[in-house]
Simulated scan of single mutants.
Amino acid sequence: MSALDIAVHRSNDLVSDDRLAEILAAPGFGTHFTDHMLTAEWTPERGWHDARITAYGPLSLDPATAVLHYAQEIFEGLKAYRHADGSVWTFRPEMNGERLARSARRLALPQLPVEDFVATVDELVKVDERWVPGAEGEMSLYLRPFMFASEKFLGVRPSKHVTYMVIASPAGAYFARGIKPVSILVSEHYTRAATGGMGAAKTGGNYAASLAPQQEAIDHGYDQVVFLDALERKYVEELGGMNLYFVHDDGTIVTPELTGTILEGVTRGSIIELAGVLGHKVEERRFSIDEWRDGVTSGRITEVFACGTAAVITPIGRLVWSDGEVDCSVDGDAGPVTQRIRQGLVDIQYGRAEDTFGWLHRVL
């Protein structure tokens, strides 16, 4: 049970029903935000306190606010789903809470207890329940909890004032035109994270580090970039923000092991469990870029896909590097294993299949 006492101050300026209907008809991703936001504060003397839900609005930050100078910041991402009976559920929110705590340790931020994390997310969803899209399609309410150093101080040390917030944004189906394989450029000049660094933490700096290579890929006509390990530059790690899976001709699925440089995705772990139930042996091990290239060429690797909260599962087609390429798609489409696993996962999330894993958390 949460120890936080969350005060609710409802906005007097709600988005009109007509405008909300327009937004939910075509929400996009991350462009519209709900009527309210949750905020809580932390200091060494008081711990977590002053948790409240208020009208959504801008923040006022002093130019010397620590996060602006030293990037002491972490965040999470999860979704609320409307089921056919009108109920609202989140998917494994305790896993997001545990990961936020791990990220907090790495960034020298205070840990928010998992039960408080879940309670803050639940409370904002309850207050802004009308923003949760209907059960049709693959729409959802995307939730963004985040924490940052909010002390006014120019000095390299952990902040003595920290702010935690949760905001929410309705999200449409990630693949508006259907699930089609994406093209991937191998990053040969940049790395994402090194052993002992922050690769396993969900912090904005990791995503900032991926932007230049991502832009390079887009400039050359590709959708995404894949990073290799920083030491030997030969082992596959992840895309800019998605974990990877390689389906072999015997049904075995391989995903790069967690070595401290790869984010431990909630979707990643769920796919490992679900794939096992569907009859696939899943291996977590080091996986080289040569094994990817040679495996596709020989036919040993039959499908490749990536996963994350936003897209759930994304099939991968072309893999391109400086002097060659291979195509991992199945006749220009997602492969059968990719489609089966993706469908199995979203059916659980939207309540269309029995949740035998106990992953769903009821909010309303």
Rank of each mutant, 00 (worst) to 15 (best):
G205Y: 13
H49N: 08
L244P: 02
E138N: 10
I218Y: 11
S329I: 02
T302S: 06
F287K: 11
D290Q: 08
R342G: 03
A209K: 12
I272M: 06
M198G: 06
P110F: 03
H9V: 14
A3R: 14
Y207H: 05
K180T: 13
H32T: 10
A209G: 06
L228Y: 03
S140C: 00
M37Q: 15
L14F: 11
E138W: 06
I53H: 04
R46L: 07
Q349N: 00
A84I: 08
H361Y: 12
V312T: 12
F75K: 03
K281V: 12
E216R: 12
M165F: 04
V296A: 07
A135N: 10
S329E: 07
V121E: 01
G199L: 04
R52L: 09
D229L: 12
F246E: 13
G351E: 03
Y350H: 13
Y245S: 06
E129P: 05
G358I: 09
L38Q: 07
A168D: 00
R130G: 07
C307P: 13
W359Y: 07
A84K: 12
F29S: 10
T163L: 05
I289V: 15
Q215A: 11
L154I: 14
T314D: 13
T65A: 06
R130K: 14
E94Q: 14
P44D: 14
E303N: 08
T297F: 09
I301R: 01
R106T: 08
T65I: 00
A173S: 13
Y207D: 02
R268F: 08
R233N: 11
G155H: 09
Q111R: 06
Q72E: 05
R285F: 13
I272T: 08
Y190N: 13
V132C: 04
D62S: 14
E303F: 05
P256H: 01
G279V: 05
L239E: 02
H280K: 08
G199W: 02
D219H: 11
T120I: 13
I253P: 02
I179M: 14
T163P: 10
T54N: 11
L244R: 06
S2W: 04
T314E: 10
L228I: 01
W321T: 08
G358E: 07
E115Q: 07
P113L: 03
A55Q: 15
R300K: 09
S322H: 09
K281S: 04
L143M: 11
